[in-house]
Design a protein around this nucleic acid. Structure first.
Lengths: 161, 161
DNA sequence: CTTTTTGCAAATTCTTTGCAGCCCA
DNA sequence: TGGGCTGCAAAGAATTTGCAAAAAG
């Protein structure tokens, strides 16, 4: 599901504020790109984002998307992630904080998301044991091999069509 | 410090076994590359590894290093990592296995290390449930607040002297 | 001998940059 | 108007691939 309209508005407001503070200009392209980015779910690649943007307006170049995502990252509104599939993916900041964790296949690049309350409970416990810490957020990434990648006879790769 | 000779031997033996099982050939280049790789400490880039290899024998090509590291990764003896610096780095698999996780205080910046077998067991289980994945390595970072940072009366910060 | 592997260079893929013209403030 | 933007295409950087020659089993 996409982000709630209220969240998107709040993000856009932060973006505007950032532009003003940095003496940057509001342009049609930037507005389009950030609007699509804020509405996007999960981790978006430059290519995916450009595709969405072009659905709404034909003429936006790769370079502008790169440049805008760089600004978003610098402003703290986006975070860049490397999953080892050869391209950088971006996520709306804040989404990473409460959301899902990742399972990444080292071979085929497939990325799955998961949540596990038991693990999170243990995390809290570990932190408490280490002197009374309180966990605010966490980042958990599992890197592994899907059955196919391990060379199992008949192993399947969830990524295959 | 480099890996102990005994470890290197054990790794080499696993490598040989892998080659045989996959009907691959043992070549001078491959032997050199894996020998250097197993002795290397930490996360090595292709370029660094090639440099080391060439110190011992002049004529090994980039492509061969790439291809050999791919084999090592598929065999489970190496893991690929992205640190966002634009190049892939590789680590000897065993190194990641006794890798510790981090607990970071958002306020005072203290970083503690921990290990928790129960969490790791759950990670493996999650991966298995998601279609039969095998976890090769993981990254877990907890961001939180130490007691002092939370403003607890008399709360102590382990970081203070 | 047959099959794999290698090294080279060319090809790919992802990302950044230079620059002339366009647009916002 | 003037300094930032943009799109394009060219430049870069990292990795992969095609192919003939070389090496392994």
């Amino acid at each position: 599901m996409p982000h709630a309209a209220a969240d998107v508005d709040r993000l856009k407001s932060r973006w505007q504020k950032y532009l003003r503070r940095q003496n940057l200009k509001t342009t049609q392209q930037r507005e389009l790109i950030v609007a699509e980015f804020f509405q996007a779910e999960g981790h978006v690649s430059i290519e995916e984002l450009l595709e969405r943007v072009r659905r709404r307006s034909a003429k936006v170049g790769y370079a502008t998307v790169y440049r805008t995502l760089k600004l978003l990252t610098e402003s703290g509104l986006a975070t860049a992630q490397q999953f080892g599939d050869g391209q950088t993916r971006f996520e709306v900041a804040g989404e990473a904080e409460n959301h899902h964790d990742h399972l990444i296949c080292l071979q085929c690049g497939l990325i799955l998301e998961f949540e596990n309350p038991e693990i999170e409970k243990l995390q809290d416990q570990v932190a408490a044991d280490l002197g009374g810490f309180k966990v605010v957020r966490h980042k958990l990434e599992l890197y592994g091999l899907c059955p196919k990648a391990m060379g199992q006879k008949g192993g399947y790769c969830p990524n295959e069509s």
